[in-house]
Amino acid sequence: MTFDFGEVSVREVSRNYGRRRALTRVSLACRAGEVLGLLGPNGAGKSTLLSILSTLLAPSAGDVRYGTKTAAEAGPALRACLGLLSHDLHLYPELTAAENLRFFAQLYGVSDVDGRVAAALDRAGLLSRRDDVVSGFSRGMRQRLALERALLHEPRLLLLDEPFTGLDDASVAALVARLRELRGAGRILVVVTHDLDVAERLLDKVAVLKDGRLVAFDDARGRIREHYRAHVAEQRA
């Protein structure tokens, strides 16, 4: 059950919830070693697009290709190449940090579970708290643990939904450094964020969504703030 890809491309994707259209004919692409940022006001369709990329949601029209294959063509092997860090973190608060990581490592069928779990705890700075239940952790600690949980199986495509929310400056800097490291390792990263400072430091490409439509798709890092002002700040005002 092995599958790999060097590019993810979204082609004319639309998604309806009943009569409401959450996404309208969105097309974009991101290659290995790139960080794509999804920007836009609340309700623009960013999280819907992330859910479609993660295969948890099926598009109503259009398709997403992972390399040359769609999710249906790649089958369950594709899910072994995807990692999702959602705003809800996907951790069991009643389990310890090590138990959470071990459960997901076993579920993903990774080899050397103990070694991977120890390395992940080390990277998250939680080795000394490995046997503490997650409900006692701060938001920053949980966020670091959740990121390592999402990376346990070394996914090719990592999807992050507002990963910087609720973090202090030090935690944001640490997370940005970790994401740059992953970009350097050839991962494809798609990040939903409202944080322009972080966006300018991290993103290689930016896609701005508004009312479910793609209003800007640019690979010039210097123009991120310009696009944000034109399409997002305008709506807030």
């Binding site: 059950m1 948890l56 369950p76 959602s86 809800d88 973190l89 996907h90 608060p93 579920l107 993903y108």
Partner: peptide
């Protein structure tokens, strides 16, 4: 539902 862990289960390559 509380921590959306069901989505994490659905995302795993497990049957």
């Amino acid at each position: 539902r509380h921590s959306e862990t069901l989505r994490a289960l659905m995302l795993a390559p497990a049957s």
